[in-house]
Design a protein around this nucleic acid. Structure first.
Lengths: 115, 115
DNA sequence: TGCCTATATCCGCATATGCGGATATAAGAT
DNA sequence: ATCTTATATCCGCATATGCGGATATAGGCA
């Protein structure tokens, strides 16, 4: 019961939904998320930690850079929720805006950033 | 965005999940829920109110009795979430126990109660 | 109208959760 | 070892959320 609650609780917050919406397009680095979401590093990290602990994300360190992606389908509930969720997020204005910003950011990304 | 959050937030609590699990089997009265869940009336009513406001339930008064059922499929996200949710709730021990209790309660229901 | 029953809502309390700046930790270079 | 950069975690604060008893509201009957 509790893991079910945690899965839904993770989805009960705007920043976390926007993070999932962005990662639905593929793996990203914390610095990417910071730039696109325009939020402080600590806020981003807190939410990433929450999503990872709830089972939604997997993280991987490459040097000083930390990448996150949607977790593998090892949880039946999450596997079924994800397509439903992605479909919904695709309709939300905030997520649409985020994707546009990500595309722009990727084009103009500074040499100093990851990648 | 906010209605999406509210839909998920409604599912982020045990009593509310258990209520949905019970109502998945068909309409019930508040007194039924009180008996099966073994919780005070105010607790039940609070959660029913929350679920109704989030769009999950519809209520109907018949005399002094208040019946609740799962809301009609007028929300695309909820319509897609519901089968996923029901499938998951069917696997949870707490919900299985609730259904057994409901069956027993229905058999032994007092004349004084609704119905 | 008064009384009774069912139930929604209020209220005080305790705990949970979100924020962001500060700091700890990890990685890499010199 | 020291310094720099990236990021996880801590911490104090403000707000949200859950609890259940008390009370307000709704419905029915005499």
């Amino acid at each position: 019961m509790n893991s079910t609650i945690q899965l839904f609780k993770a989805l009960s917050e705007e920043v976390r939904l926007r993070i999932i919406g962005l990662l639905a397009g593929g793996e990203l680095c914390v610095c990417d998320l910071m730039a696109v979401l325009d939020l402080p590093q600590s806020t981003i990290s807190r939410h990433l930690s929450y999503l990872r602990n709830a089972g939604w994300l997997a993280g991987e360190r490459r040097g000083v850079w930390m990448y996150y992606r949607l977790a593998e389908d090892d949880n039946p509930l999450r596997a079924e929720l994800l397509p439903v969720l992605q479909k919904q997020l695709a309709t939300l204005a905030e997520c649409t805006r985020d994707r546009t910003r990500l595309a722009e950011y990727t084009q103009t990304k500074q040499e100093a950033a990851c990648g």
